[in-house]
Write a protein that binds this DNA or RNA. Structure first.
Length: 580
RNA sequence: GGACCUGUGGUGCAGCUCGGAGUGCACGCCGCCCUGUCAAGGCGGAGGUCGCGGGUUCAAAUCCCGUCAGGUCCGCCA
């Protein structure tokens, strides 16, 4: 018998790999007892489970093993008797007979069943994650993740990128996401922080001459958690010198398509593109889910002189909901509530019926308005048209959210629709102090055509920043970086960052740039999210071995926990009295 | 910081509107029976602070208030 790669001193084969070709061979397998079926004192069946699957062992006589006992079974691979083949089991044509059972570990009754006959509450799964990980779903998801990681590394290597590790203990850079803080023992009152991303480190690597860098990097952000956000997450982080945005998009596309090919078995076609402005206008979001159409329509001109007060706004946007005329009043009320909670003043709805528009507002509409609404997005009888009137961005965002509510399918359904969203604005809004805020980060290169607007009309300035979006999930983002001191000073000035402040915050980066910074650009995308979508999971916890709950607890270890007085003293920490 | 949903033997649920004895279902567990099962089957059995605290009531799993835990979302995430 040729030795299998999985063979060890204790086993010859994985349970799931035993098949007709092994008939007649005497083999040992190791695993957990998934199920015992006893037929009196003369016959018992054991289902043995390891990571590869389940294999039935036939034991003559009674056997004292229980569920989840760890056993080593040595037996002869035998074709199952006529009529007892189990087609639902990959190994169902054979079984181990004449078995010798060796108990390697006994086990308590597990706190939940591992056989997937019932859904288990996630709270219970997380408390006993080590048991949960034995389940097929978790085995499949984490192995898929490992394959994606391997594919990404292969792809980056093939594209000439060099993997470099950057520090986890880094300097505070008070900007952007809230950082996790690590007190220093050797330096009283001083702190490291855990990196929210290796952003500055990788730019320094560019100055250092590593003109194609990548890393599968852990990032840490002390922000509230979500289905697609954990404190710590993993990114494929990359940066390259002597490149333009086009080069970066090519590098990342290649890596993602390589990963997709490994994960799904098919290589997706070329990744499409749209500008940020198009995404907002058509889909009401910067991360459009292109698995379904439902493109927002602009009716502002039609309603520019409307008598209807509800439509007196700079922008009037409409969304057609196919076959939505059958929505109940309570469902329409719920949509209205959602629109209001998103900041809309209201939501107008119109059922398109054979007798015209059915709506509380219908009788106030002019003929021209009725005609416009009735033909929005090729509306048909039986459809529903939703209208939001507001400031432009507001109207787009509200309808965009309703579009997702009404149209989005589960993660596991439909094609994988990648899209590059380009030309993000450089600045977004103004903070409490009246300063502009960087949309991406302060080192993002403005669009070359908009350089002259930085001082005169900053909110109009487009950037060379770009996002990769898959089925409504933001996978990641990147930008061309500023490598010229003159442009960087103009941006800092616009952001209200003084020279002194810039020096104290980013001095080491700006200092490095004085010694010859190549033009460079980069990207980073979330591997947790990518794998979750490949796995058809709505939640990245399902592709993370030991995740935190939404309130940041680890239900298995009990973290976060208090530390000993000794540790507190070593770290020079004292706690303020509770409250206030 | 906020909104909504959930919490009932080990597990998953029902019961909650309309208060009346911890009532029920499925799985698991324990014992006995069973020589071809694979969601094995048959018989019997054990197992509960209805998340926690307070209130209303003659009486609370059920109604009210608070709180804790889990989830989804808003804020937040350069």
């Amino acid at each position: 018998m040729p030795k299998e790669i999985e063979a060890t001193s204790l086993r010859d084969l994985l349970c799931g790999s035993v098949n007709e070709n092994h008939v007649g061979e005497r083999v040992s397998v190791c695993g957990w007892v998934a199920k015992r079926r006893e037929h009196g004192e003369h016959l018992a069946f054991l289902d043995l489970r390891d990571r590869s699957g389940v294999l039935q062992a036939v034991v003559e006589g009674s056997v004292d093993v229980r569920s989840e006992y760890v056993v080593r079974v040595t037996g002869t691979v035998t074709p199952r008797p006529e009529g007892t083949v189990n087609v639902r089991l990959a190994t169902g044509a054979v079984e181990l007979s004449d078995c010798q059972v060796e108990i390697l570990s006994i086990a308590d009754v597990p706190p939940f069943q591992l056989d997937d006959r019932v859904d288990i509450d996630e709270q219970v799964r997380l408390r006993y994650r080590y048991l949960d990980l034995r389940r097929e779903q978790m085995q499949r998801n984490l192995r898929l993740r490992a394959k994606v990681n391997a594919a990404l590394r292969r792809s980056m290597d093939a594209q000439g990128f060099c993997e470099v590790e950057t520090p986890l203990l880094w300097a505070p850079t008070p900007e952007g996401a809230r950082e996790f803080v690590v007190p220093s023992r050797l330096h009283e009152g001083e702190f490291y922080v855990l990196p929210q991303s290796p952003q500055i480190a990788k730019q320094l690597l560019m100055v250092g001459g590593f003109d194609r860098y990548f890393q599968i990097a852990r990032c840490l952000r002390d922000e509230d958690l979500r289905a697609d956000r954990q404190f710590e997450f993993t990114q494929l982080d990359l940066e390259a010198s002597f490149v333009t945005q086009e080069d970066i998009l090519d590098f990342v596309s290649e890596a993602v398509l390589d990963a997709a090919e490994v994960a799904t078995g098919a290589r997706p076609g070329e990744i499409g593109r749209m500008t940020w402005a198009e995404a907002l206008d058509h889909y009401g979001t910067d991360k459009p889910d292109l698995r379904f159409a439902m493109v927002l329509q602009d009716l502002s001109e039609v309603f520019a002189a409307s008598e209807v007060k509800a439509f007196a706004a700079p922008t009037v946007k409409a969304l057609r909901v196919a076959e939505g005329a059958s929505f109940s009043r309570s469902k329409l009320d719920a949509l209205t509530d959602q629109a209001k909670s998103l900041g809309a003043k209201g939501l107008a709805w119109f059922r398109v019926t054979s007798e015209g528009l059915d709506s509380p507002l219908a009788r106030f509409l002019s003929e021209k308005e009725v005609a416009a609404i009735s033909s929005v997005d090729d509306a048909q009888i039986g459809d529903l048209v939703l209208i939001v009137a507001d400031e432009y961005v507001e109207a787009c965002r509200v309808l965009g959210a309703l579009r997702v509510t009404l149209g989005a399918r589960p993660v596991g359904e439909g094609p994988h629709h990648y899209v590059w969203v380009t030309e993000f604005p450089l600045f977004e809004g103004i903070d409490e102090d009246g300063n502009l805020q960087a949309a991406h980060h302060p080192f993002t290169m403005p669009h070359p055509d908009d350089l002259s607007l930085i001082e005169s009309d900053p909110l109009k300035v487009r950037s060379q920043a770009y996002d990769l979006v898959l089925n409504g999930w933001e996978l990641g983002s990147g930008s061309v970086r500023i490598h010229r001191a003159d442009i960087q000073s103009r941006i800092f000035r616009a952001l209200g960052i003084s020279d002194d402040e810039a020096q104290s915050r980013f001095g080491f980066l700006l200092g490095a740039f004085k010694y010859g910074a190549p033009p460079h650009a980069g990207f980073a995308f979330g591997i947790d999210r990518l794998v979750a979508i490949f796995a058809g999971e709505e939640n990245i916890r399902e592709v993370i071995a030991f995740p935190k709950t939404q309130s940041g607890n680890d239900l298995m270890t009990g973290a976060p926990k208090s530390i000993s007085e000794r540790q507190t003293r070593d770290l020079h920490l004292r706690f303020a009295p509770k409250g206030k």
